[in-house]
Every structure is written in C-alpha cells, then in structure tokens.
Simulated assay, not measured.
Amino acid sequence: MTLPEPARAFLAREGWQDALSRPLAGDASGRSYARLTLGEKIAVLMMSPSPDEVTHFENVGRWLLSNGFSAPQIMASDAPAGLMLIEDLGDDLIFDLVEADPAREAPLYGAITDALLALHRLAPPDFVAPLDATGLGDLTRLGQDWAPLLSAEAATEVPDLVTTLAARLDDLAPVLCLRDFHAQNMLWLPGRDGVARLGLLDFQDAVAAHPSYDLVSALQDVRRAVSPEVEAREIARYTAARGLDPDTFAADYALLGAQRALRIHAVFARLCLGAGKARYVDLMPRNWALLHRNLAHPTLAPLARAVGAAFAPPDAPLIERLKRECGTRPMR
C-alpha cells in the first residue's frame, strides 16, 4: 500500500518508516486505515480528513481506557495532519463472529449490554458535547436534501417533530454515547477480563445523550439482523439492571430508533448520490423496516404520519434509480 507523503513523514518521525502497510476495510466516512507491520510489532494507522476528529478520538479513547474499557492505545498522533498511530486490537469483529456462528449471538450481545451498563454507571466526560432534543431533530434534516421525497413540505416537518418528541424523553441523566455502536465496530478480546473483553472502535463522534441511543444502535443494526429474541432479552436486561420502567423506556427506545433510522436513510442516499458508494442503498430496505417498526409505537403517531407523507419507500425501482444516479451529485 502506498501511503500519502504526510503519512510517510509522520511514520518516519515515529520510527515506523520501514513498516509494511496494507489497507484495512474503511467505513462510510472519509477516514482510511492501514495495518502496519514492523518486525514483530503491529499497529494501525488512521488517516482522517478532520483534525478535530483525531483530537476527539484521542480524548474519548483515553477516557475509556482510564475507566477499564478496551479502546486502542494511542501510540502517536498528529491531529493537524489528521494522523494517528493506534494499537491493533485484531480482527475478531463481533459481526464476523456471529455471522460465522449464529449460536454466539446471544452471549456476545449479552457482553455488549454488560459493557453499556458499566459505561452508563459513569458520568460522561465534560469534553463531550450534549446531543439534546434540538440536536436529535437537526440530525434528521439531512433527509430534506438527500432522501428521495414524496413531499418536500412534509419533509420539513419531520425534524421539528423529532425535536418535540425528544423533549419529552424520560428524564434520565445523559451518558457517554459512542454513536456508531454496532457489531462491525466492536471486537471480541477473550484474553481480557470483564467489560475489557469488548474492544471499542470508531468513537470519534461520541456525545452525551439518552441511555437508549447506543442500545438501539447495537440492537437495531442495519448491517445485520439481530434476532428479535436477543433484542427483547437485552432490552429487558438493561431496564431491569437500571431499575427503569419498561413501558417508558420502550417509548424512548422507539423514538431514538426512529431518529437514527431517519438519519441513516438520508446518509445512505447521500453516500450513493454524493460519494458514489452504491453498496449502501442495498441496506435501505432493512433500515426502512426498522424505521417503521419504531414508528408503530403509539407515542410516535404524529411522526409516523409525517414520515409516510414525506419520504418515498426504498422499493426495488427506487433502489435501481439511486444506483443509476450514483455519484451524480458530488458533495461540496
């Protein structure tokens, strides 16, 4: 793998100039990754277009490590250049382990819930921004610009409805939410103990938010279908462990699930139309099904009506149209 000159200069400063590099699978962001091998040493090079992202990743990572969680150790960083050298936690993604052996889904998702419960017993660090009701609504405004619409007027109503509904969320103290918290961003580290067995990745967008946010992210994973039995069991375990009212938490969970699915719907359309990444539109039908499962909760009836009027369902003809138009609306 040929690295860009700033990355080569960074590695030379850190004594890794002779390392062999090979690309690692990226994600939906503009970040890229390389696995480095230097003799018996290994590391991961993260290259980001955002200096702030690198700084936040480093801050959140150090906080997680100091509280007993497994985040990659920070070996070196150059935030202005968007570069970071981090510990390589291996390849045992929860996603891959469960796909290879579905019998492992229940115990591994139990470990995910255990990690969230431990995380949520802690006050979030003061350097993370809050994701409040207004912020939750604003995150869905992307749909007005990128999601295929039935009614632009109805689409403008959706963010304000999300904000209004989110203002009524159960009054639980905010917790640290890693946000992109799903099976492809978690590693299984069986040689470690307790919550440290779950390796955490991709937390540069972490915020302080409602406790259901990351639970929804893990259990309503658009990339793999978590079994209904496991989802129900882990929700019940979480509410019981925290002494929460199940009905109230179910309403909160449905709202945060709907909010996430609305944003993901628009993000996937943008990744195709604006970034030329057609593969994401194949996930839109599953995300759409999750969205409407959440919207079926009685407390979300006004939002369900607005969404039904605003957005075109991602049926087969729409998916094909998005693929034909892939990359035709470059993002500025």
Rank of each mutant, 00 (worst) to 15 (best):
L3P: 00
F10W: 03
R13F: 15
E14Q: 09
G15D: 12
W16A: 03
W16G: 01
W16M: 01
R22H: 11
P23A: 14
P23C: 08
A25M: 05
G26D: 05
D27R: 04
A34F: 11
A43K: 09
L45I: 03
L45C: 04
S48A: 08
P49N: 04
E53W: 10
E53H: 10
E53L: 10
H56Y: 12
V60W: 13
V60F: 12
G61H: 03
S66R: 12
S66C: 13
N67V: 07
A71N: 10
Q73S: 10
S77H: 10
S77V: 10
L85W: 14
E87M: 12
E87F: 12
L93D: 04
D96W: 15
D96R: 14
P102A: 14
P102Y: 14
P107I: 08
I112T: 00
T113H: 06
L117Q: 01
A118G: 01
A118F: 08
R121L: 02
V128P: 01
P130V: 04
P130Q: 07
A133P: 08
T134F: 15
L139Q: 15
L142S: 02
D145A: 15
L149D: 12
A152R: 09
E153Q: 15
E153L: 15
A155K: 06
A155I: 08
T156C: 13
D160L: 13
D160K: 11
T164R: 15
T164N: 15
L169G: 00
D171H: 08
P174N: 04
R179F: 09
R179K: 07
F181R: 03
F181Y: 09
A183Y: 12
A183F: 11
M186L: 12
P190G: 04
P190Y: 12
G191R: 12
G194A: 06
R197H: 00
G199Q: 07
F203R: 01
D205E: 10
V207R: 10
A208N: 04
A208C: 03
A209F: 13
H210D: 04
P211Q: 11
L215M: 10
P228H: 07
P228T: 04
E231M: 13
R233N: 15
E234Q: 14
Y238I: 07
A240Y: 09
A241E: 12
R242C: 13
L244Y: 13
P246G: 08
F249P: 02
D252S: 01
D252K: 00
D252A: 01
L256T: 01
G257V: 00
R260N: 07
L262G: 01
A269Q: 02
R270V: 06
L271D: 02
L273H: 06
G274Y: 11
A275N: 04
V281T: 03
D282K: 05
M284A: 09
M284K: 10
R286F: 13
R286H: 10
N287F: 12
A289P: 09
A289K: 12
L290N: 08
R293D: 09
L295T: 02
L295M: 05
T299F: 15
A306N: 02
G308I: 13
A309D: 05
A309N: 02
A310E: 01
F311A: 00
P314Y: 04
I319G: 01
R321G: 03
R324S: 06
P330L: 08
M331L: 15
R332V: 11
